[in-house]
Design a binder for these strands. Structure first.
Lengths: 132, 132
DNA sequence: GTAATTGCAAAAGATTTGCCCCATT
DNA sequence: AATGGGGCAAATCTTTTGCAATTAC
């Protein structure tokens, strides 16, 4: 395998994700990163996000409502709650019962590597309010 | 509310989705539709897919691995299995236990409108095989 | 007749990539 | 010094949109 280097850019990007709990988009990570490295480019941010994702250091979340990907430092398995009004993304526990389900016994499934659960609704900040 | 019309294009698109079980992309729906309506445009396909989705007649699935959206005729709630090797998308039952979980009791959640469960792994056709 | 809808083509976003230079090892 | 990685900009890909012409009602 090819060896990787510890560049300042990569470190900064990883730091940002590990310290954030807002699940930023690539663009947001970019803006954050520029405060530390004013010359960093968006392409570099994307390349590193993909790299870190492939290494398992970062997780990419694709909102089911069609916005851009959001990222988080990878920690223990959990699910996500997505507020349709304000677009907030919250970590929530992964229901334990999902771990007991033998999806492999379903017709057509051979092995399961990941369970991705998105709960969509309205967050406390937005209450039941229907945003136009 | 504004009134809608039953155009041939819209009907054909809905038919395609209701008869397919492969969860086609917009592009694929477009190719299918052209067999019946050779002049239909991709823009029309997108407009109608969005329209039908908003009416609840069609469901849009955004693969967590970053491909384009896929569509299905809306039927009873179910989850999806996504094969990382061949990209197949299969309907699987939504685990009943999820219905019992009171996500609203989680910190920050006020109301839940939809549960989106994606199980990712390898399908029977691909077995454990690692595709390059 | 009227307004919703289409086809076409251009536009908009998001993400990727080529290329050449620079920095890490 | 060797080469992985960065910066910049152009390219890609998917999806949306403006507009004039068309069609369902």
């Amino acid at each position: 395998m090819k060896k990787t280097r510890n560049t300042r850019q990569r470190g900064v990007i990883l730091d940002i994700l590990q310290e954030s709990c807002s699940h930023p988009t690539a663009e947001t990570v970019y803006r954050e990163a520029r405060r530390v490295l004013p010359n960093i480019s968006l392409g570099t941010v994307y390349r590193n996000l993909n790299f870190l994702r492939d290494q398992g250091a970062v997780r990419e979340i694709r909102p089911s409502d069609g916005g851009s990907s959001r990222f988080e430092g990878a920690h223990t398995p959990h699910a996500h709650f997505h507020c349709v009004h304000c677009n907030a993304l919250l970590d929530i526990p992964l229901p334990g019962t999902l771990g007991n389900i033998r999806f492999e016994e379903e017709e057509g499934i051979s092995a399961v590597s990941l369970i991705d659960l998105h709960v969509i609704g309205s967050c406390s900040g937005c209450e039941g309010g229907a945003a136009t």
